[in-house]
Nucleic acid binder design. Structure first.
Lengths: 357, 357
DNA sequence: TCCCGAAGTTCGATTTAAATG
DNA sequence: GCATTTAAATCGAACTTCGGG
């Protein structure tokens, strides 16, 4: 097997033209199977294909993009990679883009405004055709995204909703999730329940709490306000572990008995379990604990965490689906209204909760 | 404040030329602060800058890249995103690239050969200037990478070494790691120790075991071959949890007493802890357990896992550093030999191990 | 010769318009 | 008009060369 000398990436369409004896126009038409290709006899096609093959020709994407104004690239903007929530969502994003032959540029904003702005500019410069924003743990003014609206780049937010029809979104149904969590504890016979709510700045917090109160109301359960605490505002998702631990310690010190604890998310739950253990309280024997998200660690730790699962991979895939449709619409100069998809969570009962009955 | 009508991305350098009253050449020189710019009077510069600003001019990267043959892009190839090991490494990669104004294209091979090949082609087509391969949990023939050698793209492997000077690598010193783990258990007084070794196909397995035997030899500790088991070959990193659990169950059934278990990695350790717990054995009271890697979950679960930490973020950053230097070398037509960096791990003593004394 | 600026070429692929038989 | 092929224009920026003062 012979290979062309030197760098194969230097072979241009003109080289193929010369080698095959046809013009670069014809080569282009044949290799792209353009409409005009139907007039070109099979012999010619074969000769050109063979020449291209022989030289190891690969079209230069820069030149192609310059003409077509397309990058076949989608931007992915994560607000904090270290949030374990990201992993599966990214997997879903990647997989769907792969199927459609798009490539993702990954950016991690670190929850910093300056970084957000810089990355956004860089992505715009690269002429990304779409954008997926993973705003799960978000402490930035989302209006930063307003710049995007005028750029007319199809954008989908995951984990946070922005009203209006300029930007799509995919979020879990937090209200249902909160409902499910409390329902689960209640069905196990728990009545004295402690709650660690999310930070107020987080858009997930309010609806999740609403769902909890909804369930409480429907079954006449009374919530003890002394057993309700709030996670502090912090831009670091891992901080909710420490906060969960500290808040639980404080809860325990109160001496106000509770048989179950409903944590805002899995990280918080892990912190709570740590605190309970330190205080000599066994989970789930002496206290049941529930989380939210179902990050990878939840199934791995012992006892395995009962939690409300967000279908993370599906959410990533769904967000990309919306973006791809948006791209298609732009190409065809159609207008497409924004989607606001709310997906159902699912309770995953594992070992950290136990029946009181 | 006025904005130009329509899509700002359609403003070309010629528009700026027209607006400012100068030629596109001059505009280009000024805006890029090219060498010739020192001859151009401040008045001209100011006028051009103002015109560019007014029109919202952004240079077209496609055109720029076409001329300069540079993409300012680095490929990142992960063999399995769902491996929690990836998270921090990716953070290190991203952060270092950001500092150097490069953007990463993220690809996830899913440990599939076809995917690997397809992605590699796509990345090559995009004219990535460098490549970082995260081959932590690798069950593919690495010779696949041979194609890369002739492409002369600076490449660094993380987590697996390839002899020769065509490709750099960054790996932990597995031998030291194994040594540290056993040393730790030994110093706590453990003598009857069970071992779950890594799959043979994994390049980490052998040196880690070598380190363990080295320590055993230096302190005259005898290893009981009945307490040594191997993880099966599997391309799924999460499978080591289940395997760890099953192997530990089997170990327990043997009725051959052990006071500590040294697991191949954190996942395996989590599985082992689950099995021990199910068998009514408390960690660390009745059995100490150590892992390897220090994935995020290790600090989060209860008891927190004692483990050998890989400096993952630093490894990602280091790999990118090597790649960037390679890119620089290519630009200056220098030759650079491959680096083979071996970084030191660190024992992190937490709650899953306890002194027998 | 030094300073300033413009005209024209190049990068590589696509596409329009047009030329052959 | 039809099948087959191609010269030339285009995309947008950057660089080389050149001319006028």
């Amino acid at each position: 097997m012979r290979h062309s000398k030197g760098n194969a990436s230097m072979v241009t369409i003109r080289d193929v033209a010369k080698e095959s004896g046809f013009s670069s126009t014809t080569v282009s038409i044949v290799l792209n199977d353009a409409p005009l290709a139907r007039y070109i006899p099979p012999v010619t096609k074969k000769r050109i294909a063979r020449a291209a093959e022989k030289l190891g020709y690969r079209p230069n994407q820069f030149a192609r993009s310059l003409r077509s104004k397309r990058s076949h690239t989608v931007g992915v903007m994560v607000f904090d990679m270290t949030d374990p929530y990201c992993t599966l969502v990214l997997r879903g994003i990647e997989n769907t883009l792969y199927q459609a032959s798009y490539l993702p540029i990954l950016t991690d904003v670190h929850n910093e405004r300056s970084r957000f702005e810089r990355y956004l500019e860089m992505l715009l410069d690269r002429r990304i055709e779409g954008l997926v924003v993973l705003a799960n743990w978000l402490f930035l003014d989302i209006n930063l995204l307003a710049d995007l609206e005028k750029s007319s780049i199809p954008t989908t937010l995951i984990g946070c909703e922005l009203k209006g029809d300029s930007m799509s979104s995919v979020i879990v149904d937090n209200e249902v999730g909160g409902y499910l969590a409390l329902e689960h504890l209640h069905s196990l016979g728990h009545r004295k329940i402690a709650f660690i709510r999310g930070p107020k700045a987080l858009s997930d917090s309010a609806p999740r709490w609403r769902g909890i109160r909804n369930f409480a109301k429907t079954c006449g359960l009374e919530l003890d306000s002394h057993l309700i605490v709030d996670l502090p505002e912090s831009s670091d998702p891992l901080s909710s572990f420490e906060a969960g631990q500290k808040l639980t310690e404080a809860l325990i010190k109160q001496k106000r008995p509770f048989t179950a604890l409903l944590a805002f998310d899995d990280m918080t739950a892990f912190g709570a379990i740590r605190a309970l253990n330190r205080a000599g309280l066994r989970v789930p024997e002496q206290c049941s604990v529930t989380g939210f998200d179902d990050v990878a660690a939840s199934a791995l730790c012992t006892p395995a965490l009962t939690t409300v699962r967000q279908p993370m991979e599906a959410m990533g895939a769904g967000a990309v689906g919306i973006v791809l449709e948006g791209i298609q619409a732009v190409l065809e100069k159609r207008e497409v209204a924004a989607y606001h998809r709310k997906v159902a969570p699912e309770l995953v009962a594992r070992e950290s909760t136990r029946s009181l009955l």
